[in-house]
C-alpha cells in the first residue's frame, strides 16, 4: 500500500490563548479532490498555513507521501510539491500574467528556465482560460482573472498537492460555473487537491470526501453526502451559512 498524498496527525496551532487548530487529523489520498469546510474562523486557513509551511505547528505531524514535512521552511515544502493559492488573492503586482506564472514554473518542481519555462507558463494560462492574455499586467486584471493567474502560478510548480483557499469566493454565478468546471478539469487530470470552500454547491459537486472544522477542532469527516446531512455539522453552520 502506498502512503497517502497528505496525512495530518494531531496538528495543533495556537495564537496566544486562541487555539486556531486543535488536534486535527485527516488523510488525503493521491488524486483525491478533498474538501475542508467549516464556519468563519474555524481554522481552515490556519490548517493550510500549517501544511504549506507558512506557519509551524505547535504539535503533531504533517506528512507528504509518507515523508514528514512539518517544521521545514516554506520554500522547502514548496519544492517538495505543495503549492497553494491565498484566500485574498496574491499576485505579483508589478508583472504581467506570464511572469507571474513563471514564478511558479521557474522555482517549483520542474525548475524550468528560459523558453521552456515561458512555454509551460503559457500552457497553464491557456488551461485556466487566459490564452492571449499573457502580456497583460496583472494589476490591470479583474479579480477572477487574478485568481486564474494565481492558480496557474500554483500549477506551475507541478505540485503533488494543491491547496486552494476559497478559490471560488467572490465569483459571480456565471464565473462560479466556470471555476467549478476548471477545478473539475484539474482533478480529472489526476491532481491531488485540498480545497477550502464556503460554497456548498461546489463541495457537493466536486468533492468525494471532506472534513468539517469548528472552533479549531475537526467535528466530522467522511463522504460529502454523509457529512453535510450530519446534525452536528448543520448545527455548526446554523446562522453562519455562507452558502452562495
Amino acid at each position: 500500500m502506498t502512503a497517502p498524498a497528505l496525512s495530518i496527525v494531531g496538528a495543533r496551532k495556537s495564537f496566544g490563548g486562541l487555539v486556531a487548530v486543535n488536534d486535527v487529523s485527516f488523510e488525503v489520498e493521491k488524486g483525491e479532490l478533498f474538501g475542508l469546510i467549516g464556519p468563519n474562523g474555524s481554522g481552515k486557513t490556519t490548517m493550510l498555513n500549517l501544511i504549506s509551511g507558512a506557519l509551524e505547528p505547535d504539535a503533531g505531524e504533517i506528512r507528504l507521501s509518507g515523508e514528514p514535512i512539518s517544521g521545514l521552511p516554506a520554500h522547502q515544502i514548496a519544492r517538495r510539491g505543495v503549492a497553494r493559492t491565498f484566500q485574498l488573492v496574491r499576485v505579483l503586482p508589478s508583472m504581467d500574467a506570464e511572469r507571474n506564472v513563471m514564478a511558479g514554473v521557474v522555482f517549483g518542481g520542474r525548475r524550468l528556465w528560459g523558453a521552456e519555462a515561458r512555454d509551460f507558463a503559457r500552457e497553464l494560462l491557456a488551461l485556466v482560460g487566459l490564452r492571449g492574455r499573457e502580456q497583460v499586467p496583472v494589476a490591470a486584471m479583474t479579480y477572477i482573472d487574478q485568481k486564474r493567474v494565481e492558480l496557474a502560478r500554483a500549477l506551475g510548480a507541478d505540485p503533488q498537492v494543491l491547496l486552494l483557499d476559497e478559490w471560488l469566493a467572490g465569483l459571480n454565478p456565471s464565473e462560479l460555473a466556470i471555476g467549478i468546471e476548471l477545478i473539475e478539469t484539474l482533478s480529472r487530470q489526476g491532481r491531488t487537491i485540498v480545497m477550502v470552500e464556503h460554497v456548498m454547491d461546489a463541495i457537493r459537486t466536486l468533492c468525494g470526501r471532506c472534513v468539517v472544522m469548528s472552533s479549531g477542532r475537526k467535528i466530522k469527516d467522511g463522504s460529502v453526502a454523509d457529512v453535510l446531512s450530519d446534525p452536528d455539522v448543520v448545527q455548526a453552520y446554523l446562522g453562519d451559512d455562507d452558502d452562495a
Binding site: 520554500h75 514548496a78 519544492r79 514564478a103 511558479g104 522555482f107
Partner: peptide
Amino acid sequence: GNDEQVARHCGID
C-alpha cells in the same frame, strides 16, 4: 520585491 511570502511558497529560499 513583489511579495516575499509568495516567493517562499514558490520555492525560493
